[in-house]
Structure formats: structure tokens, C-alpha cells
Nucleic acid binder design. Structure first.
Length: 280
DNA sequence: GCCCAGGTATAAA
DNA sequence: TTTATACATGGG
């Protein structure tokens, strides 16, 4: 990974495994939007950013060294070598080669745990445009406004609210789930920070004590919010894709990068489904 | 209008 | 333990 800082203040780094669309539009995050020119604007940790792709490099506009090293290097997980990870997944499970090759440049972002938990509660039985709308209204309604940039509202702030207060979000039946999650996180009953190290099964159990958090939301929280890349070895929802497309693969065979493998499997199964419907 | 959204709680088999 | 339904909303 090479990083350069131009005199415009923009940061440029090269990495042959960072595709903006595949990373920001794969359904792992909900506060990034594509511009007409293919660049992405997003809000991370109360900070706006504009990232574009140029000559095989990613450019973070107006980002200086300090900001890069304190925020973006971590958030974009730039210390991880995703090409090695792809290779390891393929070696562990050669049947997945086609899935791994079906999409490139996905990085698993290091989102904040509470934001991930809350976002994936909202995501259930919902579509991405609408999820983004609800998250956006949540931030604008209850986050801090710092020079026009809205932070993601912390759990203690949501914990004090009731369902009626969240009505403007138009989040439907999920409002009570959001409030229950906020109260359990605020009280410490659910210890998100502790989940960086705790055994996965304990984390799962704790997360699923929240009303409206099932297996899927728990795994998404662990993978995207706590960067537990070994999460998602679940039979629960991957079972379908695995049995229809990859018969014989056991979840254990996916190894310590099960969560990332799951991304490839998901993308590939959607790709096959789309091709199937084209023919029909 | 109608179907669906990378789900979950709840009530029956 | 598995299988069916409702759930609030709004995008396509």
C-alpha cells in the first residue's frame, strides 16, 4: 500500500484491491452515496469525505496526513491485504474460486459498533435506498450538527427517547427495536466494545438479547461493526446459497475469513439469480 | 395495485 | 425444531 499526499491536500493511495462501488455499495454501510461521476461522498465518525478513483488510485479529497492516519487508514482497513485474503479463501475452499472472482475490490470497513448495530436493525426486511433514508433522518434528527455534518446519534441519546419520538424516521416496526438496542447498549447490558475480543458465541447471545436482533443482524454487527472477520459461519441464512450453488461446503471450511467469504458467496448467488432471470 | 426488501417475533404444526 | 404470517414503509 502506497500513500502520497499532494499539495492540494488530497491523499492518494494505491491498492489493487479497493473498488469504490463494490466497497461502498455492497450493503455493508449506509452513509455513502455515489455522485454522477462515480465518486463517493460519505459521513464517517462525524466527518464528511469525498473519495474518487483516478488512474487506479483512490483519492480522498482535502485529506491531510493527520486525518488520513487517524481516521481513514483505520476505517478503510488499509493495513489488510485483501488479495492475500482472497487467495487464502480460495485455498481453503477451492469451490469458492468462482465466487471470489465474481467481484473484486471489496474491503470490510471498520464502522463503529453502535452505528452498525443500529443500521442493521433498520435493514431488516428493508431495501437499501430506504435504509439510507431512515439512517439519514436518524442522524439529522438526533445526531450532533457540526458545521452541517450530522454525527450518528450515540446510544445514550436514543435510550431516552420513546417510539413516538422516532416517528419522523418512518422506520415502521423497527422503532421499538432501535430503542431497545440503545437502552441495552447504554446500560452496559450489551457491551459492544467488549465484543472485539470476547468469544463469538457470547457476543451473539448478548446481541440477540436485543428485541429485533436475530442471527443475521448479530452477524452483520460482528462483521461490519467489530471487524470480526471470522463471523458469519452461520448456516442460518447462508444455507440457501450454499446448498443451491455450493453443495458440499461446510461453514467450518470457510476458516477465519468466513465473513468475507460470505460476501463473495452472497454476491455470486445474486449474480447467478440475475443471469437466470435474464434468460427467463 | 402488486411484489419485494441480505429479518424477526410469534404462534402453530 | 421446523414452517407459516404479520410487520411498517416505500422502491421498482
Amino acid at each position: 500500500m502506497e500513500v502520497n499526499f499532494t499539495n492540494e491536500g488530497a491523499v492518494i493511495f494505491t491498492d489493487d484491491c479497493f473498488d469504490l462501488k463494490n466497497t461502498f455499495d455492497c450493503g455493508q454501510c449506509f452513509r455513502w452515496d455515489m455522485d454522477a461521476d462515480g465518486s463517493y461522498r460519505g459521513t464517517v465518525r462525524g466527518r464528511r469525505a469525498h473519495i474518487l478513483s483516478r488512474n487506479g488510485c483512490a483519492v480522498i479529497e482535502g485529506c491531510g496526513e493527520e486525518e488520513f492516519y487517524t481516521v481513514w487508514k483505520d476505517y478503510l482497513d488499509l493495513d489488510s491485504d485483501y488479495n492475500s485474503i482472497r487467495m487464502e479463501i480460495t485455498e481453503l475452499c477451492p469451490q469458492l474460486a468462482c465466487a471470489v472472482e465474481s467481484i473484486d475490490g471489496i474491503r470490510i470497513l471498520r464502522q463503529e459498533p453502535w452505528e452498525a448495530l443500529c443500521s442493521f436493525i433498520i435493514s431488516q426486511n428493508n431495501n437499501i435506498p430506504r435504509i439510507k433514508g431512515i439512517v439519514s433522518r436518524l442522524c439529522e434528527g438526533f445526531g450532533d450538527n457540526i458545521d452541517g455534518v450530522f454525527s450518528f446519534p450515540p446510544p445514550d441519546r436514543i435510550a431516552r427517547l420513546n417510539e413516538e419520538d422516532l416517528a419522523p424516521l418512518r422506520s415502521g416496526f423497527r422503532a421499538r427495536y432501535i430503542i431497545d438496542a440503545a437502552r441495552k447498549v447504554f446500560s452496559g447490558e450489551v457491551d459492544l466494545d467488549g465484543m472485539r475480543e470476547a468469544p463469538l458465541n457470547e457476543c451473539r447471545k448478548e446481541l440477540m438479547s436485543i428485541v429485533g436482533v436475530g442471527a443475521k443482524v448479530a452477524e452483520c454487527t460482528l462483521l461490519y461493526g467489530l471487524h470480526r472477520l471470522e463471523a458469519f459461519p452461520i448456516d442460518v441464512w447462508m444455507k440457501k446459497a450454499l446448498s443451491t450453488t455450493f453443495s458440499g461446503i461446510t461453514v467450518d471450511s470457510l476458516g477465519r475469513y468466513a465473513g468475507i467469504a460470505q460476501q463473495y458467496i452472497f454476491h455470486y448467488s445474486r449474480l447467478l439469480a440475475a443471469q437466470g432471470s435474464d434468460k427467463a
